[in-house]
Amino acid sequence: MRRATTPDLEEEPRSREARVRRLAQAFVTDEAMAALRHDLLSHLTGIGTVTYLLRKHVDDGELPATEPVKPPRERRGGDLLRMIKEQVTAATSKLQRRMIGAPDRAVSEAPLAACAARARASLLNAEGVVVTLTGDDDGARMGGRLPLIAAANDVEVEIAMGCLLENAIEAVSSEHGDCEASPGSSKRDVRVTLERVTSAGDEPEVAFVVEDGGAGFDEGASARAFDAFYTTKKGHLGLGLTVARRIAQRWGGSVVIEGGGPGAHRVALRLPALPPSRRSLP
């Protein structure tokens, strides 16, 4: 006998999006770890072949006029991070292709307010942290102003927003709550503002700006914030801003730490606004 159920319009999308997020994070982590493992085994193979050649030359009683291979390159040390970054970039691209769809097939309309609401709902807020969301997204009903719609895939935008929000929530949560509140902010506040902005090239953009009451980025952290695996939080991977920026760049946007200097605590996800001609409004 079929049991009558009341569809829960709120619960299903929330759990679906949360699942997508969890899968995305797991996928990036797995890919990054696989890349590191692959790299390590490749290096061990290189070491094996190089030492074999050197040993052979010695056994043959001859030292090569020139070194049998190029001297160990910088990548053995300094370039390792670059290689990791490349692997992470490849991993996030795979993630996007596998889970979200190829760019040419992606839906290229991302209403900022809806994406932000879903991103916020998918995160488990730390106790006592208040996330406020403001912005005049519903412009179609507000004197004909154009709504805040990015020319991007909405699920990807939501993932990028989630990365920024998660950082901010963690910055003011009790686990990392020994930071000083920035001037004019409550220590437990995370404020999100949706804005219309203009790019350096004078193109219309929409922005998702996250501001928290934490201590903000110090100078060193600002410079390295987008480096893959850079984190100031114990037990964290340090991939959030990398993933967010990668997604933004994919759609011609950016992620910027506003204010720049010490104590900066505003991070903005900026994306090209959907041209009015492509907006399908009633």
């Binding site: 290189g46 072949t49 190089v50 050649l53 291979v69």
Partner: peptide
């Protein structure tokens, strides 16, 4: 991988 490629080439030539 350049190192593996170059050394394998040399080893096989040898």
């Amino acid at each position: 991988d350049e190192t593996i490629r170059e050394t394998l080439t040399q080893i096989l030539e040898d």
